[in-house]
Design a protein around this nucleic acid. Structure first.
Lengths: 229, 229
DNA sequence: TTATTACAGATTGTTGACAATGCACAATCA
DNA sequence: TGATTGTGCATTGTCAACAATCTGTAATAA
């Protein structure tokens, strides 16, 4: 019990030592944007938000600058800040770049993947194959995200992780019901398995191409749904 | 003459309307960092810099947040801001990602390049081939930068341009006399020509691979020089 | 001597106030 | 009526002052 207290106070201490109001507010606003609580196009009133978080406008404005540079909000001089709206063509651009980053991750990972990492990815792809039969879309979605996160992580490139997560955040501003279409799941599961095969075999070009095409498939799905909806 | 006045006042007006002190200061500091006037590791004193630009610390701190998010400076709580220092391994990571982005640009551009764009690139590669014989390293350097900028631009993807320029800026923090080695120039010139050939032929995979390998050659050169110096 | 503490100056973090700008609505005039 | 101008309010831009923290130095004690 005292440990719990010690842990929490330690955590609080570390928080105070490392985190500034600016960073805390930036994280909080970012979270609300990514969760959809703050919708694209929403006006972000400085005084209102500063009050809500119990800080003055100074730190908040600094947080806004960070979020602007992240591409999550847009600021117009003398007119205020708005949650960034990402149009279809812009989302398509981001998808292309992300596909390229996936390919890069594949190139890098194919030359360095460990047996343990292959195994960890296989655990995911195996469960995905299982899930296909159950048609558990939600579970597949989680596994899908985990799979791609791991591929990027395992590539072991900090710059890649940074750039990739940046794009993923921006794409969160564009999710218009891009839920998985059940009928597409079997194909995705197979593609994941094929990707792991390429990686495990150390085939650089095949890994890159498999990941690229897989990501571009995701883009195509996004574009379809846009026009259906 | 009145036109000149009108132009300059128009420009001034546009500047005042669009640019905030924050953005102006951020640009100015960024410029000084990229030019090497502010060296990696330098302490950035808020009061001193604010005074130099004739602004208060508020806008300057906002500018710092932007630069921090750009990866050009690093801020430690209660200790201040420093020009970011990029170590060798980090630069290597960035080079890998940039190579991947070059490959992505190749993929995209190979499917959409126009005759005019091919021609424009050929103008550059032709002059590069000329320059090889003259061993004009400086001129080659300029042509080299122009070539890669155009390939990215012609790819016509805003997200790619944004991410790419971000990485280029970060790499500027690491240039330790990575000037071109004269003996490497002929090979680079040939590679540029080959890249344009692939693009003009609309060969997606070959374009991507040629640009990727070309960029990785640049990385290798950087690593060599690091150990020679 | 060496380590510890106390203090002072400098620097960063945060705030509230004031100035400048934009926006919406009312008043005016053709 | 319709367009334009003027006015007040809300909001953003900027600043200077204050609080909190850090750093280096001097004083103290073992």
């Amino acid at each position: 019990m005292s440990e719990t207290v010690a842990d929490s106070t330690d955590a609080a201490l570390a928080l105070v030592q490392r985190a500034s109001l600016t960073s805390l507010v930036a994280d909080a606003v970012e979270k609300r944007i990514l969760s959809g609580e703050l919708m694209p196009g929403s006006k972000l009133n400085e005084a209102t938000i500063a009050d809500r978080f119990g800080v003055s406008r100074g730190p908040l404005r600094e947080a806004f600058r960070r979020l602007e540079e992240c591409g999550l909000i847009r600021q117009e001089k003398n007119r205020g800040a708005y949650v960034r709206k990402i149009e279809l063509d812009e989302a398509a651009d981001i998808y292309d770049v992300r596909a390229g980053l996936d390919a890069t991750a594949g190139r890098l990972l194919a030359t360095r993947i460990s047996a343990e990492q292959v195994k960890a990815l296989r655990v995911l792809t195996d469960e995905m194959q299982e899930v296909v039969s159950r048609e558990d879309v939600d579970r597949f979605h989680i596994l899908n995200l985990a799979f791609h996160d791991r591929v990027i992580d395992y590539a072991g490139n900090r710059s890649l992780i940074e750039v990739y997560s940046r794009l993923v955040k921006q794409l969160a501003l564009f999710r218009r019901r891009n839920l998985l279409v059940p009928r597409a799941i079997p194909r995705f599961a197979d593609e994941h398995s094929a990707i792991v095969d390429c990686l495990a075999a150390g085939n650089v070009l095949a890994s890159a191409e498999a990941l690229y095409q897989h990501a571009m498939g995701g883009k195509a799905r996004m574009l379809e749904q846009r026009f259906v909806a």
